[in-house]
Design a protein around this nucleic acid. Structure first.
Length: 595
RNA sequence: GACCCCGUAGCUCAGCAGGAUAGAGCAACGGUUUCCUAAACCGUAGGUCACAGGUUCGAAUCCUGUCGGGGUCGCCA
């Protein structure tokens, strides 16, 4: 293997890894040992390779000797300014200013700001499955929304064909509970009269506020009162079996809820390809059940049709899935299987990602196994991307001071207000029309909220602190916007002064650091994409903003008097802006023109 | 009881396919604006990586155990 054509520079670490890999191969060692990464010791090197020490162990050779051979080979590369062996066998490399310039030029010229894409695009489904009919969005729903949105943006950007589905919880016992609750409050409605032949009223008998009030009531009663619970089960089964009045009422619940959810989505800048729900799986279920019965996969157990998914190798108990419960109703096991069939037929995805609370890990493992057993979709194509809960300082799910849940719109409006106040305090945007000022404040607020959530590792719980969430200093969304906005301001000024970007020349330490950071984009993209962890991307964008802020403070850009330097630095700033906006876009954050 | 996740600076968190001096942000302290947006920049201080063993030339990272926190375990989703 030889180095890629030098007329097209590419990721510095890749070039170095290839060169080092050749050197290892020449020694009869594994090429993969040549993997180069950003140095842990920026004072010593730009990049490092630890392969010599690993190789020495296997080949029983002196690690420093191996490292020295690799270093000698690396020194022959034009892009290598210096290479040396350090300590027990670290290989330290500094790249030449020319190589940095070339890479910066490439990023500046590339519409994708230096980002690679996948070799083989896949059809991917992303299921957000966190929202429910009759439940208003609260702080706990934020995670599936922003994580799922970030992933759909990232996967699309990497080249995959993504279909996102909000996948509303609209078909379980909670529907029967709600029907009965409404029946108790308003028994005279035609929906409950089996003799009524229609048509049913077009306007909903309940508002979103009503639903928000009724649902907890109904749920509480169902838990404590066995008779009521049986009635709820009965209603659920009748709804699913198609009782017209119940269906009509249920449709009102869904529509009313959807209006509210769409408003939140618009506010957060999140969109879905599909607004399907558990109920959409219903048509696929009877045939599935018959098929599984016929093939002996479904078994009758205590009145319910189940599918066993336990395996001998299991270390824990693995309960069967309940395909049809003893009332004849479909629970979320069954509806998830039905949904898999629906997607298989309409999309045929190669990968399905379920962005749902970590606490449902067991459920998804069961469903995926059942899907595999039934031959619907292979288990390996189904992934549950669990996320941790949003906790208060006590480690329990977050509650407001009065013990209630924090509604999402309340969080957003508080952040909006804080943001607007901050602008006024800084006397910014005074010359901007009221509408635009509010728009800017909202963008800043959404950036703060999304970044706070996304910069936590997806899989772990985190402690939510409202003040910190909407604070605008330090490692926050607004910090990132601020970096981008300053460059936009530079661009306007350059336009007015007739300054154009020119050839990039790397001289200052701050410039080196910035280009090295720009070059690191693909590492972050690959990490975030492969592991489905948006925080890796957040870290990159933050580091990039930091590197730019350092550069901005260290060197005059448009204020530089030397025209060549001015043009170079301006070009570097514009390349940074492109990558910043790209990265921000992938975590769902929009950049205002000013702030 | 079984299984899963977590325990890193005063606080909130990165780092964990082993690698050099464990990194950020906030809070604290000290500096920086005649100059492109100070929502910024630079610096100081702050850690027995829960604890105990083990593997290794080398462990925050891998293995075992203990303690502490959170979660899950068939007809709710």
């Amino acid at each position: 293997m030889t180095l890629p054509d030098k007329t097209r520079p590419t990721e510095l670490a890749d070039l170095l890894s290839a060169a080092a890999g050749d050197a290892f191969a020449a020694l009869g060692l594994d090429r993969a040992l040549g993997a180069m990464r950003r140095s842990d010791r920026p004072d010593l090197a730009d990049f490092q390779c630890n392969g010599a020490m690993a190789a020495a162990k296997a080949a029983k050779k002196n690690p420093r000797e191996i490292a020295q051979a690799v270093v000698d080979a690396l020194k022959a590369q034009a892009m290598v300014a210096s290479a040396e062996v350090a300590g027990p066998g670290f290989i330290n490399v500094k790249v030449s200013p020319e190589a940095l310039s070339a890479r910066a030029e490439e990023i500046a010229a590339d519409p994708r700001a230096g980002a690679v894409s996948v070799d083989k695009p896949r059809r991917v489904v992303i299921d957000f499955g966190g929202w429910n009919v009759a439940k208003e969005m609260h702080i706990g729903h934020l995670r599936s929304t922003v994580i799922g949105d970030s992933l759909q943006r990232l996967f699309r950007f990497m080249g995959d064909h993504v279909t996102s589905d909000v996948h509303l919880g609209d078909w379980g016992l909670q529907m029967g509970q709600l029907i009965n609750e409404v029946k108790q409050e308003q028994p005279g409605l035609p929906y409950f009269d089996e003799a009524f032949t229609g048509p049913y009223p077009e306007t909903s008998p309940v508002t979103m506020d009503d639903l928000g009030r009724l649902y907890p009531q109904a749920s509480a009663k169902s838990k404590t009162d066995e008779e009521r619970r049986n009635a709820d089960r009965q209603a659920t089964q009748e709804l699913q079996a198609g009782r017209p009045g119940y269906r009509a009422l249920w449709r009102h619940f869904c529509n009313v809820t959807r209006v509210g959810l769409e408003r939140e989505c618009a506010s957060l800048g999140v969109r879905f390809d599909l607004w399907k729900g558990e109920s959409d799986a219903e048509p696929f279920i009877p045939a599935l059940v018959e098929d599984l019965k016929a093939r002996g996969i479904a078994e009758l157990d205590a009145g319910a049709w189940i599918v066993r998914v336990a395996r001998e190798t299991d270390k824990k108990e693995m309960p069967p899935i309940i395909l049809v419960n003893r009332d004849g109703a479909i629970g979320y096991h069954g509806s998830d299987l039905g949904t898999i069939i629906d997607r298989k037929q309409s999309i045929d995805p190669e990968l399905s990602l379920y962005v749902v609370d970590q606490r449902q890990a067991l459920h998804f493992e069961q469903v995926f196994r059942a899907s595999d057993r039934a031959g619907l979709m292979p288990e390996r194509s189904l992934e549950h991307l669990g996320f941790g809960t949003v906790n208060g300082p006590d480690g329990k799910p977050y509650k407001t001071r009065d013990g209630g849940v924090l509604k999402l719109y309340e969080l957003i409006s508080q952040a909006d207000a804080t943001s607007l106040a901050r602008m006024q305090e800084a006397e910014l945007g005074a010359d901007v029309p009221e509408d635009e000022r509010r728009d800017i404040a909202h963008k800043v607020a959404v950036a703060a909220i999304k970044f706070s959530d996304l910069s936590n590792v997806r899989t772990t719980n985190y402690i939510f602190d409202l003040d910190r969430f909407i604070s605008f200093e330090g490692k926050t969304g607004p910090y990132l916007l601020y970096a981008a906005v300053r460059i936009k301001s530079l661009a306007r000024r350059a336009q007015a002064e007739g300054v154009k970007p020119g050839p990039i020349q790397i001289e200052l330490d701050a410039e080196r650091a910035l280009v090295l950071q720009l070059d690191a984009l693909n590492d972050a993209l690959r990490g975030a994409y492969d592991k489905r962890l948006p925080h890796i991307l957040c870290d990159h964008v933050y580091s990039l903003a930091q590197a730019f802020s350092g550069f901005y403070a260290a060197a005059p850009i448009l204020a530089e008097s030397d025209p060549a330097k001015r043009a170079s630095r301006f070009a570097l700033a514009m390349a940074t802006l492109k990558q910043l906006e790209l990265g921000l876009g992938l975590i769902g954050i929009e950049t205002p023109e000013r702030m």
